[in-house]
C-alpha cells in the first residue's frame, strides 16, 4: 500500500480508474468476503463449541448409543440411525413420485397443464415445516394409528419392520412427512434436468418411431441420469436436516428400533428439543457436535448433488429453496 501511495501518478496512468470505481470494487469484494467468512466462522465456532464433547468421548461419540444427560454419557448412534432410516424411508416414497411427476411435467403432460402444476409443486415446497408438523400430529398420525398401521400389521406383520403397537407417531410418520416435504425439490430439480436434455435426443428417438414414453425412456432418462441422481441427493440433503415436522411426529425417543411403528429420534430433532434445556457444558457440547456432524454430512451430500446436476445441463438454475 505504501508503495502505491508513494507513486500516485504512475499508478493513475497505468490504470486510469477513478475513486468511485475503487470504492465500489472494495465494497463488492467485502460483501463476497463476508459470505466466505460467515461459512468459515460457522465451522470454527461449532468446532470450538463442541470441543469439550470431542475431547471427552472422541470417536466413541459415534459408536455408542447411550444418551444420558444425567450421567453425562453421550453417544450419537440412535440419532444417526433415526436420521438415516427416516431419510431412507422418505426417499423410498419420494423418488418414484418425484421423478414420475418430473417426467410428466417435462415430457408427457399436455402443454397447457404444465405451468399451473409446476407452480403448485413450488407451493408444496413453500409450506413451512412447522405446518407440516401440525398436520402430521393431528391428521397423519391418527390416520396411521387407526387405519394404516393395523392394516400393515395384519398383512405384513411377519416382517419385523411392521411389528409392535400402533402409536401413530413414530418412524413411519416421520418418513411420510419427510417424503411429502422433499418430493417438490426432487420434482423441480429433476424437471430442470430433463428440460436440459437436448431436443435432438428426443427427435432421434421419435424419428425412429418411438412413442412418447419410449422416447423418455431411451433418450431422455438415460441422458439425464446423473442429473437425476443429483436431484435425489439434493432431496436427501433436505431430508437429513429437516427439523420441525420430524420433531413433531417421530416420537422423540433415543432408541434403535427395527420397527417402523416405533418412535425414534433424529439428529436435527434432538438439537431442536434439548438445546434450550441443556444444563451442563458437556451436554451442550454434545448437542453442538451432533449439529456439526449434520453440517458435515449435508455439505458433502449437497456438493456431490450440485456437481451431478451441473454435469447434465451446466449450472442448472437451482430451485430457490
Amino acid at each position: 500500500m505504501a508503495v502505491v501511495a508513494a507513486v500516485p501518478r504512475v499508478e493513475a496512468q497505468a490504470a486510469p480508474r477513478n475513486l468511485g470505481d475503487q470504492v465500489l470494487r472494495l465494497v463488492l469484494r467485502a460483501a463476497a468476503l463476508t459470505l466466505v467468512l460467515l461459512v468459515l466462522a460457522m465451522v470454527v465456532s461449532m468446532v470450538r463449541a463442541s470441543w469439550p464433547a470431542m475431547r471427552a468421548f472422541g470417536w466413541r461419540f459415534l459408536a455408542t448409543s447411550t444418551w444420558d444427560p444425567v450421567a453425562e454419557q453421550f453417544g450419537a448412534i440412535p440419532f444417526v440411525y433415526g436420521t438415516l432410516l427416516s431419510s431412507l424411508l422418505a426417499l423410498l416414497i419420494a423418488v418414484p413420485l418425484g421423478i414420475g411427476a418430473a417426467i410428466y411435467l417435462a415430457e408427457l403432460a399436455p402443454a397447457w397443464i404444465r405451468p399451473p402444476i409446476a407452480f403448485l409443486v413450488e407451493l408444496v415446497a413453500a409450506v413451512p415445516s412447522v405446518i407440516y408438523g401440525l398436520w402430521g400430529i393431528f391428521v397423519l398420525a391418527p390416520l396411521l394409528r387407526v387405519w394404516v398401521q393395523p392394516a400393515l400389521g395384519k398383512t405384513l406383520g411377519f416382517l419385523p419392520l411392521f411389528q409392535g403397537p400402533p402409536y401413530g407417531v413414530g418412524m413411519l410418520a416421520a418418513g411420510i412427512i419427510l417424503a411429502i416435504m422433499v418430493v417438490p425439490y426432487i420434482t423441480a430439480v429433476s424437471r430442470e434436468v430433463l428440460l436440459a436434455v437436448p431436443t435432438s435426443q428426443r427427435e432421434a428417438a421419435l424419428a425412429l418411431g418411438a412413442t412418447r414414453w419410449e422416447t423418455t425412456r431411451i433418450a431422455v432418462l438415460r441422458y439425464g441420469r446423473s442429473g437425476l441422481v443429483g436431484a435425489i441427493l439434493l432431496g436427501l440433503g433436505r431430508a437429513l436436516g429437516e427439523t420441525m415436522a420430524v420433531t413433531m411426529v417421530i416420537g422423540n425417543r433415543p432408541e434403535v428400533a427395527v420397527s417402523l411403528f416405533a418412535p425414534g429420534y433424529t439428529m436435527a430433532s434432538v438439537v431442536a428439543n434439548e438445546f434450550a434445556e441443556a444444563t451442563s457444558d458437556l451436554y451442550l457440547a454434545a448437542l453442538i457436535e451432533i449439529g456439526l456432524l449434520l453440517f458435515v454430512v449435508t455439505v458433502i451430500v449437497n456438493a456431490l448433488a450440485r456437481l451431478l446436476v451441473w454435469s447434465v445441463g451446466g449450472p442448472v438454475k437451482a430451485v430457490r429453496e
Binding site: 461459512v39 466462522a41 460457522m42 463449541a49 439434493l234 437429513l240 438439537v271 453440517f295 449437497n302 456438493a303
Partner: peptide, 28 residues
C-alpha cells in the same frame, strides 16, 4: 478465485439445515 469460492459456499450454505444455522447464531 474469490468468485468461484463465494459461489460454491453460497450453494453449500443453501443446503445447510436451518437448525445448524440456529446453533451458529446461538454460539456467536
Amino acid at each position: 478465485r474469490l468468485p468461484w469460492l463465494a459461489r460454491f459456499l453460497a450453494d453449500v450454505l443453501n443446503g445447510v439445515p436451518s437448525i445448524v444455522i440456529g446453533i451458529f447464531a446461538y454460539s456467536v
